[in-house]
């Protein structure tokens, strides 16, 4: 019984592109139903194989079941959309109030509470079976990997080898591991998680070159660009909320990828054309390609 049941449940699992928490509930329920029906048939003296056949027939096609569940869970509630948008809104807010300019007990406490809140939300979300709204929060756990990498590249020449030989391979392995774990559910969730990374990477590229050479210039540039940075994170918040609310998968993909181009236009406008058109084109297409990597990885893993 177990082998055929597992195959059935695996087909449902593979076809169910939805919230991991909801998916877990459905699979447990189907397994329980299968066990109850099978036990009843066995009590009637029906042989194992015939009983399994009957249970399968009564449950119907696993793909149809998955499709019907997708119609139910295709979109989240407004509350879930708000929770998904929250980490981007917090970052946008911190940038908008220029939280780094005046570190006193109030701003320090707010910052500490924000970080503590982010950790708590992720732990709670993980404990709840990784619902969709937890992935935008998870994305911020991968940002230090990128940030540290870019900063290491900007180190004086003699120390660059640290980035080349140690940090970058380790960072790629860590990211690959995290994305791979997420891909077990759905590549779109991995993309939702990685959403802020190209934006953060580009902002660091824009500002990071001055951090070692001229700290005053860095602070000045950071302050000047803070409103635009806040706006780009606000756009990420809208993208995440839209992703949760819309029902159709194609629209979800469009909600994640299309506004990214808009953010890069904003980046180009505020960078005073320091990348040039070709640079901008490369960064934009590179970031879109980066967001589509989970799709390719999922295909390869399967």
């Amino acid at each position: 019984m177990t082998g055929r049941l597992n195959t059935y449940l695996e087909t449902v699992r593979a076809s169910l592109k939805l919230d991991p928490a909801a998916k877990q509930v459905v699979l447990r329920e189907l397994r329980a139903h299968f066990e109850d029906r099978w036990a009843e048939l066995k009590r009637q003296g029906i042989p194992d194989e015939v009983a399994v056949d009957r249970v399968m027939r009564s449950l119907g096609s696993p793909r149809v079941v998955a499709q019907q569940l997708l119609e139910v869970y295709g979109h989240g509630t407004w509350r879930q959309a708000m929770v998904a948008a929250m980490p981007h809104l917090i970052v946008a807010w911190l940038l908008a109030i220029r939280a780094w300019q005046e570190i006193n007990w109030l701003s320090g406490t707010l910052l500490a509470l924000t970080i503590l809140g982010m950790v708590t939300v992720v732990i709670y979300g993980w404990w709840q079976g990784k619902p969709t709204w937890v992935f935008p929060w998870l994305g911020y756990y991968t940002i230090p990997v990128i940030a540290a990498g870019v900063l290491i590249v900007s180190l004086p020449d003699r120390l660059n080898w640290i980035a080349g030989f140690v940090y970058i391979p380790l960072a790629i392995c860590a990211l690959y591991y995290i994305v791979r774990q997420t891909l077990r559910e759905d590549w779109l969730l991995a993309t939702l998680m990685l959403l802020p990374m190209p934006i953060v990477f580009t902002w660091i590229l824009l500002l990071g070159s001055t951090i070692y050479t001229d700290s005053d210039l860095f602070v000045w540039q950071f302050s000047t660009k803070a409103p635009a940075m806040a706006l780009s994170f606000l756009a990420l918040a809208v993208m995440s909320a839209t992703f949760i609310r819309v029902r159709q998968r194609r629209v979800k993909i469009a909600a994640l990828l299309t506004p990214e181009i808009g953010i890069f236009i904003l980046l180009a406008l505020t960078s005073e054309n320091s990348f040039g058109f070709l640079g901008w084109l490369l960064l934009t297409s590179g970031s879109l390609a980066f967001l589509l990597i989970p799709r390719l990885l999922e295909h390869r893993l399967k």
């Binding site: 189907l30 449950l59 119609e71 869970y73």
Partner: peptide, 11 residues
């Protein structure tokens, strides 16, 4: 069709 019960309950 027993498999369709769960989508209905979840709805």
């Amino acid at each position: 069709r027993e498999g369709t019960l769960y989508p209905a309950l979840h709805r």
